[in-house]
Nucleic acid binder design. Structure first.
Lengths: 339, 339
DNA sequence: ACAAAAATTGCATACGTATGAAAGGCTAGG
DNA sequence: CCTAGCCTTTCATACGTATGCAATTTTTGT
């Protein structure tokens, strides 16, 4: 009801000190005498005063806001990222401003402008493509950027990823070791670096085993499109005996089609592997063999890069690539089942 | 590299006009002559100028930031909410600042303080409890609040919910109609209004059908705890023949235990129903009968309440309760299976 | 107890923008 | 051609805080 914005001046007046004293009291790293500190504390509590972050940011040049660009939260991987990233930044006194972008690249440009309008101290780009030109612009504005779970050619951009190449290779080896020979791949969105690298690693693994890719289709990271891809891929007479689906989210769709539409047994008739290790992957209904992305470490590295870049400018860009572990579950055959 | 913050003054100088002119050009609803508008536009583009939202908010008193408090994103329902809410607000020129809260109520207090520090124009509380005292404080600070998917006794708080009572009742009726008699319930977090109302509705539905609750346990909205509850509930010799799990997320856990640990057939041996209709509910692996919460409408109402309250203060609190539809799927038996 | 050094405090200004009031420029009506 | 009225523009100030500088107080060492 009563909309009394209480300012540092009000507190100062009540406490009988100057406004600067109040400001100093609330600014970490500055000193005030014990006596005035107590007077200010009492006055502030009485009035319910808290410093205005926005006004503060105007003068310090730091907003303590991190912009997060995400394209879609449909895939369980990203909510998890949002939660952990947000928690981690909160602990450091920062907060996350969310920007949902379309997959279209032109929208990303518009959105990045909006982000900069908010004077964010840093930007995390997850699941969004960014033109080099735009990257340059952000770089010029002095705002540190971290690409999360994707790579860009631009050397000036920091990035945190899992070892998608190695992961893809691990999966190929695992499938071959368990006796599979007709290996197929269902791709994500072709523009994504994760898609590209996972596929490349998979193909390398195949080549090392002396195999060629048996079939390929595209699911664009969407459940429904992955279903369609699975239908196409398994409708013929010559079926793959194993399929790597570019992420878990799509793998669930593929498994559902194989089991409930085509009546195939997993892993007896066909092995399925995914990537990410989102929570449903370990739920018994799916029990999916996959590569675990270490979200905790990825987030920690992201926060680390951002905060150091914020504190001392002109930090060189860093590229962090974290290992992912193969998690073997029931969706891939052990050898004896195969015999 | 070059960190040139370009201000309205820079633009004014280049365009040969006053700073106020530049400000007016960028403030919708104000008028500038065509001639100067063009000069300003050219200068602004040349310098890459964009108004500083934070500085603007200092003087207008509007930050165009909405604080969103969420406890956990584990349940698919909330990522969906975050995405739609964020999109919807973005379209209106607002943006979402995320605050992850623990389930503990004391943390919510701390977090709400932090929110207010950012001078948000409004707050959406999803999956978080808020003390009345705290609610009063927010109310006093003049910041409109909407409780999303929960209710509070405090009359001054606006809230948007589904008809949890009616939904619970619908489910009871559905289970009874399909021939089930030993109906059980697995509860969410006891402090949540959704939990309370869904259970109450369910019990009312039972009573109307002349039945009493057969068994009850608690899952606290968590996958693992719901698993444990299911194990306890179905370990005895006298088993329920149907169970309503307070939300879909927990229902998946229950289904997984019933099928893969206890070897029960759904719906032949036991029917399972949930609440929310999150995406996996319609995936064939679960194919869960549930109550659909209309997230789109809930979000639309939330945004509507917020924006009207922001525009004209002293808007009375509103409570919106939206109908949820029963979505019948394969996890409940049709009569003939039962015979 | 006194001077010097250190710590604290207040004053004034700046951050980047919006906006009321005043001044200037233009149009139109007689 | 003059003046009343309207549209533009500028001037000045305010938003709430942080901070360099100078003034003042306290502490320290001898």
């Amino acid at each position: 009801m009563a909309n009394e914005k209480v300012t540092s001046n009000d507190v100062a007046r009540l406490a009988g000190v100057s406004q600067s004293a109040v400001s100093r009291f609330f600014t970490p790293g500055t000193s005030v005498s014990k006596r005035t500190a107590e007077k200010i504390k009492a006055a502030a509590e009485q009035l319910g005063y808290r410093p205005n972050v926005l006004a503060r940011s105007l003068i310090t040049g730091k907003s303590r806001i991190i912009g997060l660009v995400v394209a879609y939260l449909e895939n369980y991987f990203y909510p998890d990222v949002v939660e952990r990233l947000s928690r981690s930044l909160q602990d450091q006194g920062y907060h996350v401003l969310v920007f949902i972008s379309s997959l279209a690249a032109d929208k990303v440009e518009e959105i990045t402008q909006e982000i900069l309008d908010y004077q964010v101290d840093g930007i995390v780009l997850a699941s969004a493509n960014m033109s080099s030109e735009l990257a340059a612009r952000c770089h010029a504005s002095g705002v540190p950027i971290v690409l999360f779970n994707r790579l860009q050619d631009d050397e000036r951009l920091s990035a945190v990823t899992s070892d998608n190449l190695g992961g893809g290779r691990l999966l190929a080896c695992h499938l071959i070791e368990t006796g599979r020979r007709k290996l197929a791949y269902i791709a994500g969105f072709e523009g994504a670096s994760t898609q590209r690298d996972r596929e490349r690693g998979f193909l390398e693994g195949l080549a090392e085993g002396g195999l060629r890719l048996f079939a390929r289709d595209v699911g664009n990271f969407r459940y429904e499109e992955a279903q369609a891809a699975a239908r196409r891929m398994f409708s013929g007479t010559e079926r793959p005996d194993a399929v790597f689906v570019c992420n878990d989210h799509m793998a669930f769709a593929v498994m559902d089609v194989l089991r409930f539409e085509l009546g195939l047994k997993i892993p007896h008739d066909v092995s399925v592997v995914g990537f990410d290790d989102v929570p449903p992957a370990r739920w018994p209904a799916y029990d999916l063999t996959t590569i675990r992305q270490n979200v905790d470490d990825m987030v920690a590295e992201t926060v680390n890069i951002l905060l150091t870049a914020i504190e001392e400018r002109d930090t060189p860009a860093r590229r962090i690539c974290l290992d992912g572990a193969l998690v073997v579950r029931g969706s891939t055959a052990s050898v004896d089942i195969n015999s």
